[in-house]
């Protein structure tokens, strides 16, 4: 029982981080290998404000997310759009964007190493116990979970029930046809990429409350987010959230029953299973 609750709490924060990547990959068609670095940058932002000014991470999110929005918008506009224009096909764009964001990931790691150094970081915020179903849990995990779910819900509502969300979904389904009905596809793609970055950075700020992190840990989160997106099905918000909970549960199970150092193995096992049995994702449709 304890295991399931801890797993679900972790899954909530994972959902937020994976939704960010989902927007970048599903709508803007950029497989962003620097996604984890944006998350770590969000974590560093929360750390910096908390240790420097005693600001709660829930307040910092209001600074971190807009900052990530601006940075990611600039990245898309000035680094990735030239690749979109130069690409002859979707496959060609995939190769180019993978290479470009892979290089970008190392640039981010280098900047964070230069600013913060190579040590491990963590801070204690809301470290009181919270009793749930007779067991005690750290309040920071519960708070991070609640905030993440709130943000996920708001994002899902925005995507499903507003006109702006509808345009985003139209681009996700087919960029060429979206252009035909008067949608400014490059602009919407840039927006989706920037919002994705902001959501991921917010996820990082949430995770930093209870996770120890360092400058070069980003690649692990990139990998987890990618596996969640594939598991849930590309372009499927509901699938992403379900998949995030599955990964959270699987990781917690491996960490408590086997060894905390083997969490990546849990993610890989899920990944292999999905590749062998349902490569289109849990809720995805088989391509005809």
């Amino acid at each position: 029982m304890d295991l399931i609750i801890v797993g679900l709490l972790l899954g909530g924060t994972y959902a937020l981080m994976a939704l960010g990547l989902q927007l970048q990959y599903g709508v803007a068609r950029i497989m962003n290998l620097a996604n984890g670095e944006v998350l770590v940058a969000g974590a560093f932002g929360a750390f910096w404000f908390y240790t420097g000014a005693k600001l709660s991470p829930f307040v910092t999110v209001l600074v971190v997310a807009p900052a990530a929005f601006v940075v990611n918008w600039a990245i898309y506009r000035y680094l990735l759009q030239p690749l979109v224009r130069r690409a002859k096909s979707r496959g060609h764009l995939e190769v180019d964007s993978i290479l470009a964001t892979f290089g970008l990931a190392f640039v981010f790691v280098g900047i964070m190493l230069a600013v913060f150094g190579g040590e491990y970081f963590s801070y204690s915020y809301l470290e009181t116990a919270f009793v749930l179903l007779g067991e005690r849990y750290a309040l920071n995990r519960i708070a991070a979970f609640a905030a993440s779910i709130l943000l996920c819900g708001a994002l899902a509502f925005w995507l499903n029930s507003t006109r702006a969300g509808l345009t985003l979904r139209a681009v996700a389904v087919n960029p060429a046809s979206a252009g035909l009905v008067g949608i400014n596809v490059p602009r919407v793609s840039a927006q989706a990429f920037a919002i994705g970055g902001a959501v991921t950075a917010a996820g990082g700020a949430m995770l930093s409350m209870f996770l120890t992190f360092d400058a070069s840990i980003g690649v692990i989160f990139t990998l987890k987010a990618l596996i969640i997106v594939i598991l849930g099905g590309v372009g499927d918000i509901r699938g992403t959230i379900v998949a995030a909970f599955i990964l959270g549960l699987a990781e917690t199970a491996v960490a408590t029953l086997l060894d905390p150092g083997l969490t990546l193995a849990a993610a890989y096992l899920l990944f292999i299973a999905i590749l062998l049995f349902r490569p289109q994702g849990l809720f995805g449709r088989r391509p005809s």
Binding site: A105, F106, V107, G110, A114
Partner: peptide, 16 residues
């Protein structure tokens, strides 16, 4: 200390 940064930058130049 700047190996990652310089390599990443060089890599972007090559890709573009």
């Amino acid at each position: 200390n700047q190996t990652a940064l310089l390599l990443g930058g060089a890599f972007l130049l090559i890709v573009y």
